[in-house]
């Protein structure tokens, strides 16, 4: 019961935080000076009239009230006025989100088993040449930015070897496949280069985390106790060490899944993935208010919800952890 109460409290707090963040962002973005319009250009008058018609000259709180009313009563997030003029921002976002999600999702699906396996292997072979090789490669892989992998993947796999297309959603001979179809084998093939480019860093991250945690757990006293009770090394590792190690690894997996939604600006640019990676930045630069506030609210909700989920997950992974308890 106290667990449910805790969740309810967190959700209430989340809604309050969401409201405050949204209000702050709403007002702050509108306080930025608008993109300067050329004086004397006849189009300037049209844009100014449009701003007036859209209510951008009303007091900020009035604008926020209108925005809230639209969202709460009609789920109307407004119409993009700069990046995609005339089109509904929510529709654009949800049209572009799947491309980002699917690339990131596949990357994580590929990265988790590889990363964790390498981490376990390195931990089990601690201080051997295998561990040193894995640890060194991991450090290098973490240090190199993902766009470097992107260019390398594109150069070797698409240009030199010709195994993959250069761009997301095209064939090996460069023909665009047209409308997105994630079940088309050609489409899946075209997604592999960005997936690979994204995966190197993620694999390295999981490897390092898993190795570090497992190394620590393997040297714990309870592991010694387990071995003295007659468990084999494998049994002790799988039954006890892995479970304890997951207390740290699992939340990082959650974190990666949340990152699925945000996309990577650089990777999406290099492989022309029609995702949401550059939407946020462009909406700020272009002062596309409806787009910006919709993205802000969405990612704030995701971030706050993820925080709650991660916190609660600790309790499920390790029953000794009790969130919200004062005792």
């Amino acid at each position: 019961m106290s667990h449910l109460k805790y969740i309810a409290q967190r959700v209430a707090l989340m809604l309050l935080t969401l409201f405050i963040i949204s209000l702050m962002c709403f007002i702050l973005i509108r306080m930025l000076p608008p993109v300067p319009l050329p004086a004397g250009d006849p189009h300037t008058a049209v844009i100014e009239a449009k701003r007036e018609a859209l209510g951008y000259n009303k007091p900020y709180l009035v604008q926020f009230g209108i925005f809230l009313k639209g969202v709460l009563t009609r789920f109307d997030w407004g119409v993009s006025d700069k990046l995609y003029p005339g089109q509904e921002v929510a529709a654009i976002f949800f049209e572009k989100l799947p491309a980002t999600m699917i690339v990131n999702l596949f990357s994580i699906i590929l990265s988790i088993p590889i990363g964790i396996s390498l981490g376990i292997f390195a931990a089990l072979k601690k201080n051997t040449w295998i561990d040193h090789v894995i640890s060194t490669v991991t450090m290098v892989a973490i240090s190199v930015p993902s766009f470097v992998y992107a260019f390398l993947v594109q150069y070797f796999l698409a240009f030199k070897l010709g195994w993959f297309p250069f761009l997301f959603g095209s064939t090996i001979d460069g023909t665009p496949l047209g409308s997105i179809s994630y079940f088309d084998p050609q489409f899946l093939w075209s997604m592999l280069p960005p997936i690979l480019a994204l995966s190197f860093g993620v694999i390295a991250g999981f490897t390092r985390t898993t190795r570090a945690e497992l190394t620590e757990v393997l040297t714990s006293e309870f592991m010694l106790l387990a071995r003295t009770k007659g468990l084999t090394k494998t049994q002790a590792t799988v039954r006890h060490a892995m479970k304890n190690c997951m207390v740290v690894v699992l939340p990082s997996i959650f974190g990666e899944f949340i990152g699925i939604l945000s996309g990577s600006l650089i990777i999406e640019n290099i492989f022309s993935v029609p995702g949401v990676g550059e939407l946020y930045l462009n909406s700020i630069n272009g002062r596309d208010y409806p787009m910006f506030i919709m993205l802000t609210v969405f990612y704030t909700v995701i971030g706050l919800a993820a925080g709650i989920v991660v916190d609660i997950s600790y309790g499920f992974i390790d029953p000794r952890i009790r969130v919200g308890s004062k005792k």
Binding site: Q154, F159, D173, G174, N269, I270, S272
Partner: peptide, 21 residues
Amino acid sequence: ITTQKVKEASTRKEMFLKGQL
């Protein structure tokens, strides 16, 4: 006519040399 968004000059060059642009 097929038109693709290709932001990076290096990608455009590689595609061009492969006869794709």
